[in-house]
C-alpha cells in the first residue's frame, strides 16, 4: 500500500527534524510513501477564524489532490504528521459529509479549477500507521538498539487526539505508549498526555503560554522522565525552544530533552542521528545516548 505524505508548512521549517526523522523511519520500516504534489497550507487555527468556507475549500483541495495522485488505487491514505493538519483535514471531511449543501459548493469550486473531490481519502496520523497498519510485533522485530531503562513520557498534545481522532481515545491515548513499549522503553504514566502546550499563543501572548508549557515540563521532571516525546511540531517547539525562558521566569532548572517520537523510534531502529535531525535540537539528548550506548559516560 502506498501512502500519500502531506507535510504541511511547519514540517518544512521549524519542524524540519520531524520530517527528516519521519521519512527515515518510513524507509527503515519499508513503508512506501510519496509526497503530495503541490500541496497547500491546511489553514490551521487561523484560517478558521477569518473565513470558514475558504478554510474548508483549502483543506479539501489537498484531499482532492491526493485522490487525483492515487487515481487507480482502491484506497487513498493520506498521512498528516502535523497535528493541526491532521485535525483540520478530518474536520473538513466530517463537516462536508454532514452538510451536503456545503459539499456541493466545495465540489463546484474545486471542479472549476480542474479538481474533483469525492470524500474517499482516509486521513491518517503516523502513529495510527505504525500501530494499526504495521503493528507492535513488526516494530519490535525491527528494533536494533532497544531503549531498555529509558524513562519515556509520551506527550500527545491537543489536536492529535481531539476532537476527531479516528484511532485514539480522547482522554487517555495509548498509541505512543504501545509504540515505545515495543521498543523496550519504560513508559511513565502521567496526567498531562493531552494537555495544551500553549500553541500559537507563545508567539503572541507569552504571559499565558509559558505557564502552560511549564506545567507540562515540571510534571515530567517530577516523574523523573528522561525524555518527552511529542507528535506535533508546535508542541515540540514550545517545550524545547522556550525552556530557557521558562527557567528564567519560574526560577527552575528543567533541562528535559524533548524529541519527536519518530526521532526516538529512529534511534531505536539504529538509524544514524544525523539522518534523524538530532543535530537540529537545541541540546544533544544525552540521556538517550547514554542508554543506547550502554551505561554512563565516563570522562577520563
Amino acid at each position: 500500500m502506498k501512502y500519500i505524505y502531506y507535510p504541511g508548512c511547519s514540517l518544512k521549517s521549524t519542524g524540519k527534524l520531524y520530517e527528516e526523522s519521519l521519512l527515515a523511519v518510513f524507509r527503515a520500516l519499508n513503508i512506501d510513501y510519496v509526497e503530495l504534489n503541490d500541496w497547500n497550507c491546511c489553514g490551521a487555527t487561523a484560517y478558521m477564524a477569518i473565513d470558514e468556507d475558504k478554510a474548508f475549500v483549502l483543506a479539501a483541495r489537498n484531499l482532492a489532490l491526493a485522490e487525483e495522485q492515487l487515481k487507480g488505487e482502491e484506497e487513498v491514505n493520506i498521512v498528516a504528521p502535523c497535528s493541526a493538519c491532521y485535525m483540520v483535514l478530518l474536520k473538513t471531511q466530517k463537516y462536508l459529509k454532514e452538510n451536503p449543501a456545503d459539499m456541493r459548493k466545495v465540489q463546484t469550486a474545486l471542479y472549476e479549477s480542474g479538481l474533483a473531490y469525492r470524500g474517499k481519502a482516509r486521513i491518517r496520523h503516523p502513529l495510527d500507521v505504525f500501530i494499526n497498519d504495521l503493528g507492535e510485533k513488526e516494530i519490535s522485530k525491527a528494533i536494533k538498539k532497544p531503549l531498555t531503562g529509558l524513562r519515556v513520557v509520551p506527550y500527545y498534545g491537543c489536536q492529535t487526539v481531539r476532537p476527531y481522532s479516528t484511532f485514539e481515545d480522547q482522554r487517555n491515548p495509548v498509541s505512543m505508549d504501545r509504540l515505545f513499549k515495543a521498543a523496550g522503553a519504560e513508559i511513565v504514566d502521567w496526567t498531562m498526555k493531552t494537555r495544551c502546550c500553549g500553541a500559537s499563543l507563545t508567539g503572541t501572548i507569552q504571559e499565558v503560554a509559558l505557564p502552560l508549557s511549564y506545567v507540562i515540563l515540571h510534571e515530567a521532571k517530577k516523574r523523573r522522565a528522561d525524555v518527552i516525546t511529542t507528535a506535533c511540531s508546535l508542541c515540540q517547539f514550545n517545550l524545547e525552544c522556550y525552556q530557557t525562558d521558562i527557567d528564567k521566569k519560574f526560577k527552575t532548572d528543567l533541562k528535559i530533552d524533548v524529541l519527536y517520537f519518530t526521532q526516538l523510534l529512529g534511534l531505536a531502529l539504529g538509524i544514524p542521528p544525523v539522518e534523524l535531525g538530532i543535530q537540529r535540537l537545541f541540546s544533544a539528548p544525552d540521556n538517550v545516548f547514554k542508554i543506547l550506548e550502554g551505561g554512563d559516560h565516563v570522562y577520563v
Binding site: M87, C158, R162, C196
Partner: peptide, 9 residues
C-alpha cells in the same frame, strides 16, 4: 482560546 478542543470533548 488556543483551540485545544478540551471543552468540546
Amino acid at each position: 482560546c488556543a483551540s485545544c478542543y478540551a471543552c468540546t470533548v
